[in-house]
Nucleic acid binder design. Structure first.
Length: 440
RNA sequence: UCCUCAGUAGCUCAAUGGCAGAGCAUCCGGCUGUUAACCGGAGGGUUGUAGGUUCGAGUCCUACCUGAGGAGCCA
């Protein structure tokens, strides 16, 4: 048998016989000439089978192949201008491992389908070129995020997924029966990385988080992945700089290594090429002014009042004014989590930042400087009606060598949706978990 | 939880209250350079469910179910 090659690397074997192991993507025919397209997970290549060039058995085997039948194909690699990938395969032999019967054909045809149908067949949909390209981009984004932190002296520390208490409200928690006790799936690893940051200085976590929010929008999943750095002695400005550096690094990495996939997905790459530091930084106060001007101009339906959290249309309006992610900092403490450090200049504000992606993709990062004072943190826990007992360990961090520190969480799926230019986050993860969708 | 929209062949969609249709997929036939190939033919229907109005309902009304988009909330 000829040496095995992936389709992505087939150019290295030009003029030679190779073996491709994969599936039939599509078959076109023109009389005594067959054009089977094979895919193997790395790419797609068109085979050419003239009737007079192969045995009758091979011709018949290819002619009767059905979509997604598994095949091992031997043939000679030939450069061809007409081929989208630059190469074609002159097929010499075909071994059919499993032929999909025409009585029960592969349901996803090369024509268009609706979202419901595609989601029901997500286990097969991931075989489509575009979906495979998105999953490769996701893998690159995750690797880039990890490389960014690994190369800067951060230690990966994995927080627990089963947790005893909420770090924010309890209505959005998935309960778990933990032997005799009530436990929950984690909403964020943040509180735990604060603990490991006090041990190791610079840490990050990467893992799944769960939120039982009844949100049904293009930006929400009930199960999503976050990367959460936490840095001892870091202040708000350090956190903003870190977020800016991370986003820039990830985008550049995708442009370098996943250029072909971004093109397959149909991303406007020029928009990503503009992502360079510094990102615009605007205070909440200025954001409010900006939104009120937007309302006066008729661009926003409701007039935004100081004191509220930014709504989705507000975020879209703000981010549309920039071609880079925009960092909105110092929100009113009341609308933010209990653990955020107040601004010493204006204690009604929290030292926090939200990073809004361009093109209406919304908040991709939320972060803050964390509260360092034991006394104030205890007071906030009480004000939020949280059980002090559950946070005893967290309060300990402020008793034993408390320091200024901070960090943020970046939602992987939203970052992938933005970088790939997708309509919906459901395409950014192999098997999305959403409100009203648990299958497959 | 609320608002809006949709549900007809395996898929994507048509059908003024008056005979249930097309393209793709599947099957049969044709074509030696096709690019979601094309051309000819065939099979394929409990119009989401339950009621109601009407001589007559895919179409109008009511309720429910399912899905989509959005709000709130969030990454």
């Amino acid at each position: 048998m000829a040496p095995v090659s992936t389709i992505a690397e087939i150019g290295k074997h030009e003029g030679q016989a190779v073996t491709i192991r994969g599936w039939l993507y599509n078959l076109r025919e023109s009389g005594k000439l067959l054009f089977p397209q094979f895919r193997d997970g790395s790419g797609i290549i068109q085979g050419v089978v003239p009737k007079n060039a192969v045995t009758p058995e091979v011709f018949e085997a290819v002619k009767t192949l059905t979509q997604e039948s598994s095949v091992i194909v031997e043939g000679k690699v030939r450069a061809d201008k007409r081929a989208p990938g630059g190469y074609e395969l002159d097929v010499a032999n075909v071994q059919v491992l499993q032929r999909v019967p025409e009585s029960d054909p592969y349901p996803i045809t090369p024509k268009e389908h609706g979202t419901d149908f595609l989601m029901e067949h997500r286990h097969l949909w991931v075989r489509s070129q575009r979906q495979a390209a998105i999953l490769r981009a996701r893998a690159e984004i995750i690797k880039a995020a990890r490389d960014f932190f690994d190369e800067r002296g951060f230690t990966l520390t994995d927080p627990p997924i089963i947790t005893p208490a909420a770090c924010e409200g309890t209505t959005t928690l998935f309960p778990v029966d933990y032997f005799e006790e009530q436990a929950f799936l984690t909403q964020s690893g943040q509180l735990y990385v604060e603990a490991t940051a006090m041990a190791l200085g610079k840490v990050y976590s990467f893992g799944p988080t769960f939120r039982a929010e009844k949100s049904k929008t293009r930006r929400h999943l009930t199960e999503f992945w976050m990367v959460e750095p936490e840095v001892a002695y870091a202040q708000l400005d350090d956190i903003m700089e870190l977020a800016e550096g991370l986003i820039t690094f990830i985008v550049k990495r995708c442009l370098e290594r996943r250029h072909a996939d971004l093109k397959t997905i149909g991303r406007d790459i020029s928009k990503l090429e503009k992502i360079e530091p510094p990102f615009p930084r605007i205070s909440y106060d200025d954001a409010v002014k900006n939104l009120q001007e937007g309302h006066a101009k008729g661009a926003l339906e409701t007039k935004f009042e100081w004191g509220g959290d930014l709504g989705s249309p507000d975020e879209t309006y703000l981010s549309a004014q920039f071609d880079k992610p925009v960092m909105v900092h110092r929100y009113p403490a009341k609308v933010k989590a209990f653990y955020m450090e107040p601004d010493p200049q204006r204690p009604e504000l929290a030292l926090c930042v939200d990073v809004l992606a361009p093109e209406g993709y919304g908040e991709i990062i939320g972060g803050s400087q964390r509260m360092a004072s034991h006394e104030l943190l205890l007071q906030r826990i009480h004000e939020h009606g949280l059980p002090e007992e559950a946070f005893k360990w967290y309060l300990d961090l402020r008793k034993f060598g408390s320091v200024p520190h901070g960090g943020f969480g970046m939602g992987i799926e939203r970052a992938v949706a933005w970088i790939c230019g997708l309509e919906h986050v459901r395409e950014t993860i192999p098997f999305p978990r959403m409100l009203y969708r648990l299958y497959p």
